[in-house]
Design a protein around this nucleic acid. Structure first.
Lengths: 214, 214
DNA sequence: TAGATTGTTAATCGATTAACAATC
DNA sequence: TAGATTGTTAATCGATTAACAATC
């Protein structure tokens, strides 16, 4: 399982991008890739790519580079994509439905088995095969189905209460689309998608496009 | 307009979060806030907060802290939120419609006036007052309406062609939801929302929740 | 073998934190 | 005034880049 003492978030955030490019290469039936070529694709330096990968093990071969299929598979394992995750989504509005339907997530192993909402008009509806449950059933559903990931697509009001229910019932990961920072106990991880912040970053960069900036 | 020589992306990404907390404070009618109190709210150190703000000017007052309303307004200007942006969205599927409907963006000044899609079944439909146009009209619409921001919600296939049309017709900012990295000329900025990468980061962190990690 | 490219150590660069004089 | 808190410089820490011996 290789060494694993404290990989920085900067590294972690690059891993999915490596994985994505490796997926593309694999699809094109390209067999091998060097850190130099990966550098051209991703925009990271070859040195950084080698450093990053070597946090997890030596996947390359001198004089050759990396085997695409092997590295792809290794990165998949590192990212935890070699298994499935029982997943639910809370807040079945426009955004929630869009997320629940995104087939890319399902194929990557994230099985969304239920949606939850508090709007009586929505409860009982089927969104492409996934039923919308009453939010009152949230707690029992999580327990009965060993849910590991909760996706929060509610407004910020009430989102902390949802997070509390999730955390108190064994959910280990929260993908949060509510525009707020949730508090959770140790051992539960949160990944935020703060669309407002992303959009505001865009407008900042437009104002300052002289800046180097990503 | 204060000094402005190369603010790092690390700083830029914190600005919208400051802005969000200031908005909250303002709503609660709180008048003043110190860097120490902001530190408790945001999780950044007080020192870092003062450093960040002083990239743009001295907004505080010794012994007092920061005036909430003033700092909020200053941050709004810094982020470019003191004006409106003519905006269109390409790819009117589930996600596209959800994004187009998100009222938080409109209230922040991003006026989405048209959607575009290539699916004949969708063209002509009205999504809560916004019409879906044929993708063939994209170029002429941008020119006729001085569009500044394009939101790409298409699949990755074809997204680069869309980006090209946007960039070639004067769009200055692209908010990209397609799971790929788009190439654009100098002067056009891209802000990516790569949902897949975000989700994969979550699963990595769940596997390694011993890590300190955000 | 000779050429290419890795893994890894050392050097550099940049970002964060600490400290404190200035001052409201 | 005395206390609080900023703005800013200096010190530290961490991340990126450069370099190169190891080796396929």
């Amino acid at each position: 399982m290789a060494k694993n003492n404290k990989v920085s978030m900067a590294v972690v955030r690059r891993l999915p991008k490596y994985y994505r490019y490796l997926s593309d290469l694999k699809e094109k039936d390209i067999m091998r890739i060097s850190s130099g070529e990966l550098s051209k694709l991703t925009g990271f330096t070859a040195s950084q790519i080698r450093q990053d990968l070597n946090n997890f093990g030596g996947f390359g071969q001198q004089g050759y580079g990396y085997n695409v299929e092997d590295l792809h598979s290794q990165l998949g394992k590192i990212l935890g994509l070699d298994r499935t995750y029982e997943t639910i989504l809370i807040g079945a509005g426009n955004l929630g439905q869009a997320i629940a339907n995104y087939k890319g997530f399902l194929s990557a192993g994230f099985r969304v088995t239920a949606l939850f909402d508090k709007n009586p008009k929505m409860i009982g509806l089927n969104i492409r095969g996934i039923k919308i449950h009453d939010i009152d059933e949230l707690e029992s559903y999580i327990e009965a189905n060993n849910i590991e990931i909760g996706i929060i697509c509610t407004p910020k009001e009430g989102s902390q209460e949802i997070a509390d229910i999730l955390a108190n019932n064994g959910v280990k990961g929260i993908w949060n689309f509510a525009p707020t920072d949730l508090k959770v106990p140790e051992g539960v991880v949160i990944e935020n998608v703060h669309l407002n912040e992303s959009l505001f970053t865009l407008s900042f960069l437009m104002k300052n496009s002289d800046q180097g900036a990503l």
